[in-house]
Amino acid sequence: MTILKVDKLSKHFGGLIAVSNFNIQLEQGELVGLIGPNGSGKTTVFNMITGLYKPTEGRIQFDSKGITGLRPDRITAFGISRTFQNIRLFSQLSVLDNVKVGCHLRLRSSPIAAALGLPGYRREEQEIDRESTSLLERVGLADVAQEEAGGLPYGLQRKLEIARALATQPKLLLLDEPAAGMNPAETGELMNFILKIMEQFDLTVWVVEHQMRLIMGICPKILVLDHGVTIAQGTPDEIQNDPKVIEAYLGVEEEDA
């Protein structure tokens, strides 16, 4: 079943064409990688899908509903969640509270019920507490639940950001360079972690990444973006041998005159 369908998506910033004519179709339960040199428009694609940027052209369909140009919080409510290249946690809140914020979009009680502590709200709060605690246990952050998020070591901050995204109960998870700044051992651990949560939470995952080890290691399907244009699409093997990809990454040898 197709979960995400992106049709001829383009984004122009003034005269700069950041992304042009980008197409992708994600099937339920797929794990797809998106690679490309710096400034090739990978994050821009994510920003358009999550509503942070309005696309100049094109359509985005999620779960057969049009979500093009909607507000970010509405898109999240539909079931798309993401992490950021430069970690964006709520640093002064505790680890547990970070995850609890992710449950806020499902809260039904009014602010008045919350301010007066009415029974309906208290039940919901207990539910949020239980859900968040169990989520932290499942991703292995239960030990640091009460600590300030900003004080966590780098690897755990990455993990917490993913946990917070999971708290919104997404169907599609977008990971923007989750392995940035990680050493090979940590990257290996992250790969297993991604595969584990995919299965546990029944997710479709789309990863933007620079680390080839991670992308080639876990993604059966890869797209390559260069200067806003999709230049290749296929399995890791096909991508590695595609002359266009090699040109984009390494440049082309000039012929001797």
Binding site: P72, R88, L89, F90, K100
Partner: peptide, 25 residues
């Protein structure tokens, strides 16, 4: 101290992150 309060503080800490996890800023 309620869920709304956590959402307020999330907006204070990082508006973009708050938006993308479903808070109508």
């Amino acid at each position: 101290d309620s869920s709304y309060g956590r959402a307020f503080k999330a907006i204070r800490e990082d508006e973009v992150a708050a938006e993308t996890i479903g808070i109508s800023v």
